[in-house]
Each structure stands twice: as C-alpha cells, then as structure tokens.
Design a protein around this nucleic acid. Structure first.
Lengths: 181, 181
DNA sequence: TGAGGGAACTTTCCACTGGCAAGATAAGTT
DNA sequence: AACTTATCTTGCCAGTGGAAAGTTCCCTCA
C-alpha cells in the first residue's frame, strides 16, 4: 500500500517518543491510546507486541527511560543540594509524560528488573547530594519538597506565570528547607 | 426483571462511593470503567448520564467531594502547622482515590464552578495554619513538602512498614521544615 | 382523583480500544 | 539456496464511553 518499508528499523525508540508526545498532547497517561501512538509512529497497533508485550510493557519502558534521564539530570547538576532539587523539578517540567508515568506504578510493571535498576540509580543520585549526616527523615524531607513542588507544578495547582521556568520558581522554595550539616 | 426498584433513590452518593472503591481496587483512575462502577452500584452504565453527564463529570464530582473532605480535615486539625500537614497526608492515605483524581486535572472538568469553590475552601484552610509573616515561597514550601510526602507514599516509593500510619511517618519529616515566625 | 410533565433509569446502538492469533515479509545464518 | 528468526500486518474478539430513544415512576396542580 504505502512505500514505507515493512521493517521500521528503530521502532522502539520512535515508539517511546511517540508515547511521550501522545501523553503530553492528550491529557495524561490515562487517555493514552496504543492505536494513537501507533498512528504517530506509522505502524499498526499490533507492532508493539513484539517490542513491549502490552500497554503496561510500553509504559514500563517509558518509566525506565524516565528514571535514567532523571539520574543523568541529577548527576549533571553537581553537588549542590538546592541545584539538584532544581534539576529534579526541571526534569519533571521538561518530561511531564515520563514523570507522570513514573509515579503511577499501577500503570506499568513495577517489578521489572530493568526498571528497578534505573530506579535505584536515580535514588542513589538523589541521596548523593545530601550531607553524610542526613538521616532517613532528612532524606525524605528533601525528596518530598522537590517531588511535591514538581507534582503541584505539573497539576497546574500553582499560580505561575505562563512560560516561567519551573526550576527558577522552585529554587527559593527549596532553599527554605535547611538541613543540619 | 429484578425486583430492584426502577428509581435508585440516592444514586449520586452511591455512585461516588462505588467510584472511589473501584479506583482503589483496580489500580488507579486510569483503569476506571464506568460500566464497572455501574455494576457495583447496581444500575446500567447509562444511568450516570443524567447525574454527571459523562465520565469526566463523574470524576469532577469525586474531586469536589475530595476537596471538601480535605478542607474539613484541615479545619479539624487545629492551628498547629505540623499537625495540619499530618492531616493532609492522612487524608491522602485515607482517601487515595479522591486524592489521585484531585491532582490529575486532565481527568475532570477543572473549571467547574462547584469544584473551584471547594478548591479555594481547601486552599484557605491550608493557608490558615501558616504564620502571618509567611510569604508565597513559605506557603509553597509547606504545601510542597506535605504534598510530596503524600504523593510518594501513595505511589509506594517510600520504604514503609505495611500497616504503618502515613501521618505518623510524615510528622518528623514535616517538622524539619521550619518557617520563620 | 387523575392527568400532564418532568425526573430517573434502561435498552440499543455506534465507534473505538487493547490483546490475541495467524499470516506476511524481511534479514541473518549456515 | 534452504532454514530460522525477528519484525510487522491483517483480522478478529470482548469490553468501553457516549448518544439516542424508549420506559417507568413521582410530583404537581386542576
């Protein structure tokens, strides 16, 4: 029918990008349609079965990619605690589809080994910026404040200027949490 | 066919309860099925049209109920800032379906007047416990840390004892955020 | 009392969804 | 060249949300 080649070549990568686009365009992961993603990627809806198994499988891959991207972003932010938090928020605002899926484990296979590994890598990157003396509560407080800000930002609950940078908005807020050195 | 009366009587209330149950039982709002809720409530799937209009309409009602419950919980917690935060987390853990829907505005009609009113009532209850000197950043920090803890708790990202109380777990974490009086 | 009118609910239909099974096509491998 | 495996399509199924039309009930008002 079409002159498009039978074998796509790099469906996996394209499918993940198309999935993120569809989620961002169409109102969250709940409204995601496999067939819509397939249309964007230019393949039939059944093409994903071989690569991802099922819809939860597709979202598992997206969440894994998200944890990898988050770990990279945190590592690139350096040692400063506040700047790492800013990077966390910036990641959420810059990759809303990944972020939303990551923290709704009901959507994917939360016990997938590859996913767990990426998750732990991100958790280590997050803990790395905290002072050695930080106990579990301090770690949770730091994680909570950046995660909460990110979640509120994404849900539109914050009265923000359109076009404002989420990271810049988060910096003074995050700075208010001072942990004992 | 059945001896069940044609008119349900209080479908609206029962439907909301059944919706919350279905969301909590079936893995999040994304997997929610109107027909499943209808089966739980003992009516046909089209019965909701009259009361809620559509699926987003049903979830609008659930979110509104959620904001009302949250405002009540915050008001009942008194003036202490930490205890209000504990109440926030406890609400999220106690009403996960409401909470998850509330902060995914893509699922419902976020501009519904009744919803907006309930939203503002909850926002006022939250601001009421903060010191008068608190500026916007302090307000956001307080909201972020409790909201973040609640979100992480619900997503299962926290290494918690099964059966542990979310509020008790949150108290020492929330206490770490000290705002200038 | 009983007749109209609207509220509450059901039945039926439609386009769409995710998943499965079977087949087609391409790319290696020997 | 023959065989095997990976990749993708077509065709099908039960289940979904929504619209349209019909049914049952309640409530008001003469």
């Amino acid at each position: 029918m079409t002159d498009r080649p039978y074998h796509h070549g790099n469906l996996r990568r394209v499918a993940l990008a198309a999935t993120a686009e569809a989620i961002e365009a169409g109102g969250g992961p709940a409204a995601l349609s496999l067939r819509e993603v397939a249309r964007r990627a230019g393949v039939s809806h059944a093409a994903f079965k071989h690569h991802f198994g099922s819809k939860p499988g597709l979202l598992t891959a997206l969440a894994t990619e998200g944890y990898d991207l988050l770990a990279d972003a945190l590592a690139a932010a350096g040692d400063d605690r506040v700047e790492a938090g800013v990077a966390y928020v910036r990641f959420a605002a810059g990759h809303p589809a990944h972020f939303e899926v990551m923290f709704q484990p009901g959507l994917y296979h939360a016990d997938d080994p590859g996913l767990r590994a990426a998750e732990e890598r991100a958790a280590r990157a997050l803990t790395a910026v905290l002072p050695d003396s930080a106990d579990q509560d301090a770690r949770l407080a730091a994680w909570s404040i950046v995660h909460g800000f990110a979640g509120l930002w994404l849900s539109g609950a914050l009265p923000a200027d359109p076009g404002a940078d989420a990271g810049d908005a988060a910096r003074p807020v995050i700075s208010l949490l001072t942990l004992a050195p």
